[in-house]
Amino acid sequence: MKRPRIVVGIKWVPNTQAVRFDPKTGTLIREGVPSIVNPHDLDAIELALKTREKYGGEIIVVTMAPPGAEEGLRHVIGMGVDRAILVSDRVFAGSDTLATSYTLAKTIERIGRVDLVFFGQETIDSSTAHIPAQVASWLDLPYIYYVESIEKLELKENKVVVKRKLEDRYEWYEVELPVVIGVAMHSNPPRPISLTNKLRAVTEKPIEVWTNKQLGLDPRCIGLRGSPTIVSKVTWQPEIPRKRKIYQGNPKEAVKWLIKHLEEEKVLP
């Protein structure tokens, strides 16, 4: 029986909790800030693992990052993914979402047969949510986002039914494979790291490093040269100090109290 091949694209991002803003120079202080796997990508990994539990197959994680990202790849291998590809080369430095999605799409092409491509909903360091859509576009594949679960996967018929969550409703889609799927944030909380999987991440060699030697991409389409985005300015929205007013008493009075205070603060007209 045919087993699904699932690719999950993840991003190695600076832990934004630790990033500070220097108001004098108007730049982000990234010095000494450790990186983590983008938390929303872990939902995608988890959904991939659940899919594999049900239908078997193989999960391959792909990321484009400097060599330090191996730590993050070991983390997701610790969760149970089968293998990982680290796309890492100086020529990819300075990529915007266009160049990144192009590089990732070419990487996925090179992997060979792929049935499902998962991404997290967005990243915590830029929140553009460009990548899954652009990868789908490069690969000329359908793209469904806010997906919560895989309802039915029929490789023989070459189709999948997914459920996605919108603000006010659920929607079910039946699509032809392969398909790119954006997994809704917080929809699939990641499972713990397992001892034997983590051990495998260290003792076996499940992480391959691909440079542009393997991919052979046109230098005009990758890295800084392939990136038309210009960041003109970064500004900082300082946190608004909380008033920390707490009402204690019965709910009926609380409503009046709340409206009165919201009016005073000019939140309500």
Binding site: T16, Q17, A18, V19, R20, F21, P23, I124, P238, E239
Partner: peptide, 8 residues
């Protein structure tokens, strides 16, 4: 994002 402005 829970980052904060540096400064004291």
């Amino acid at each position: 994002m829970s980052s904060r402005e540096s400064g004291n």
